[in-house]
């Protein structure tokens, strides 16, 4: 009888117990560190002068404005972000064809998806040898097709970032394909058949029916892709460590180096908030731009 008085739709304080461990964990390992980092951004905190914490106001931010290494990192990050549209453009036709009638659909899906779940460091070392400037098989193929002076890839400052971008695209194709496959299954068959009956060419159906209908998926892939690409660290650190020179020093690498090589924790915090600002800016631009091409 007693129980019936409090129904399941009433407030139950036991709810706090259910969420307590997670709230504690998130406070301890996300919220508090985030606040600490925000404060550190305005200090000269460093592991060299342990325990000392001097507030330096906006000094770190001013330093950012005049730091060529930071400017370089922003530029390299933007170049690296091009891997997002590139891998989306490559993944769509694969997903489209897999969604058509093919045999071995599941096996094919697995093949394309495999690079995504593999250990990034292991992948990085394999590609490092494949890209070997003088002896690697990639340049071997390029020479075979008549390119006598193939690029030095990771050994050359002008090409290193593109070599790593190629690895990233290779990794991301499978992920994008899986999401597109899910999106394509939601495309109503009637619409495609209607367009077929109207005599539309295959290319026109894809261009004017399928692509607009999966545009929400494309939008999702762009957003999540940018967020994860901007955080990419493992394949760069393991292959070039930001080099040669600063040619692959994207923001995540520059933050790591500033914090854990030069122990300038305060300055590193300032850079990491700039990374956050860039993420926010990209999200904002995407949200503004979506009206033009995303059809819900």
């Amino acid at each position: 009888m007693k129980r019936l008085r409090t129904g399941i739709h009433d407030h139950h304080p036991i709810g706090y117990l259910f969420v307590l461990p997670s709230m504690l964990g998130i406070t301890m390992f996300y919220l508090v560190p985030a606040l600490m980092s925000f404060v550190m951004m305005f200090t000269d905190y460093s592991f060299m002068n342990r325990g000392q914490l001097n507030f330096t106001g906006l000094e770190n931010l001013e330093r950012l404005m005049n730091d060529p290494s930071f400017h370089n990192a922003v530029g390299k990050t933007l170049v690296f972000l091009l891997t997002v549209p590139a891998s989306i453009i490559l993944a769509f036709p694969i997903a489209y064809m897999l969604n058509q009638s093919v045999y071995l659909k599941k096996l094919l899906r697995t093949l394309y998806f495999l690079p995504y779940i593999m250990n990034g460091v292991a992948i990085a070392f394999v590609w490092m040898l494949l890209f070997h400037p003088s002896m690697g098989p990639i340049n071997g193929v390029l020479r075979l097709i008549g390119i006598d002076n193939p690029p030095g890839w990771m050994a050359e400052t002008s090409t290193a970032i593109y070599a790593i971008a190629i690895i990233q695209v290779w990794i991301m194709i499978g992920y994008n394909m899986i999401i597109y496959l899910a999106g394509l299954q939601d495309v109503p068959k009637e619409l495609l058949e209607a367009s077929k009956i109207d005599g539309a060419k295959l290319w026109h159906t894809i261009r004017y029916v399928t692509i607009p209908l999966v545009s929400p998926t494309t939008f999702l892939l762009l957003i999540t892709g940018f967020i994860s690409a901007i955080k990419t660290f493992g394949i760069i650190q393991a292959t070039t460590g930001g080099g040669p020179g600063e040619s692959t020093s994207v923001l995540s690498i520059y933050i790591y180096k500033t914090a854990f090589r030069y122990y300038e924790m305060g300055y590193a915090s300032a850079i990491s908030w700039m990374l956050f600002a860039i993420v926010m800016l990209i999200m904002l631009l995407n949200w503004i731009g979506q009206r033009r091409w995303v059809h819900y």
């Binding site: 739709h9 009433d10 407030h11 139950h12 304080p13 036991i14 709810g15 706090y16 259910f18 969420v19 997670s22 709230m23 998130i26 390992f29 996300y30 919220l31 508090v32 560190p33 985030a34 600490m36 980092s37 550190m40 967020i227 901007i230 955080k231 923001l251 995540s252 933050i255 790591y256 914090a259 854990f260 924790m265 590193a268 915090s269 990491s272 908030w273 990374l275 956050f276 993420v279």
Partner: peptide, 30 residues
């Protein structure tokens, strides 16, 4: 489970997903 403050707590919780790990490395180290 219904309890007071559930929705705002969940929002705070979700919003932490936006924080890039790069921000957290230095303070976590400390």
């Amino acid at each position: 489970v219904k309890f007071r403050g559930r929705e705002p707590m969940f929002l705070i919780y979700l919003s932490m997903m936006m924080v890039p790990p790069q921000i957290l490395f230095v303070p976590k180290f400390v």
